[in-house]
Design a protein around this nucleic acid. Structure first.
Lengths: 130, 130
DNA sequence: TTTGTTAATGCACCTAAGTTGCATTATATT
DNA sequence: AATATAATGCAACTTAGGTGCATTAACAAA
């Protein structure tokens, strides 16, 4: 690959995430762009935007790949280990702007971490009291 | 399903984990038992042993399912959130007997968590200095 | 504006993890 | 030994994700 080109697919993908902290599964993105963007293109655009540090991804409990456009991340690069949250009720997933210290582990050198929290999101919590 | 029966598959599976804290991928287990136990049986035996609380599982970064026979776990049930470690060099994965406190997150109710650490294991660290 | 280069895309096909339905086998009970 | 049913094997399926290659679209140079 040589010089990157600006394409509609790339713009469309970034617009989709907008300013939201919510993550989306790749499967969902493929469905969303049905007719507009090929499945393969979705995967390749995501790969590119990850390489460029504009998106980041993580693996959910179900093994599915989730993607997000984390804005409030603490570190500047997208390899930082901010936690992600998944709602057990509605299934939404989002980035948490939260710094978790990685503990020392005897006889191990820890380089990175994945944190995944499960529970109820704000919306679902509120819907109980209505 | 009615009354559970003792079977060779179940014993064989538990023996495989022995007293080790190491986790194994289901894919690896299927390969290991090739000729002795069917792929479907592997999945079903694992499901059963998880239900019985004798094994527990987690999803790796690659989306593969890992299984372990965690002995040194802090809590008695197998839904506790002890962290898992995966070596970036040799790929082994293991349970960590380590208690990580789940932070409070504003407007969220957190019920459970997954912690996954990456780095170098003891063996790989030692092999550098040889 | 047109032309040439090549990055980006679409498409068809593939790979592999995990699941399901059903016939067969093995275990336990009487 | 006969019976009931849990456990297993097998084949076929589902689906996330990837690959090779022909076609299209973006951009630079003329």
């Amino acid at each position: 690959m040589g010089v990157k080109r600006k394409t509609k697919s790339v713009e469309l993908m970034l617009e989709t995430f907008g300013q939201s902290k919510n993550a989306l599964t790749v499967v969902d993105l493929v469905k969303r762009f049905e007719g507009k963007m090929n499945k393969t293109t979705v995967y390749r655009v995501l790969e590119r935007l990850e390489d460029e540090g504009k998106l980041h991804s993580f693996t959910g409990k179900d093994g599915l790949k989730w993607v997000a456009k984390c804005h409030g991340c603490i570190s500047s690069n997208h390899t930082d280990d901010h936690p992600h949250f998944q709602c057990n009720d509605c299934g939404i997933s989002q980035c948490l702007s939260l710094d978790i210290s990685i503990p020392k582990v005897a006889n191990h050198k820890i380089e990175s971490a994945n944190f995944l929290f499960f529970g109820q999101c704000e919306q679902c919590l509120n819907s109980y009291s209505e």
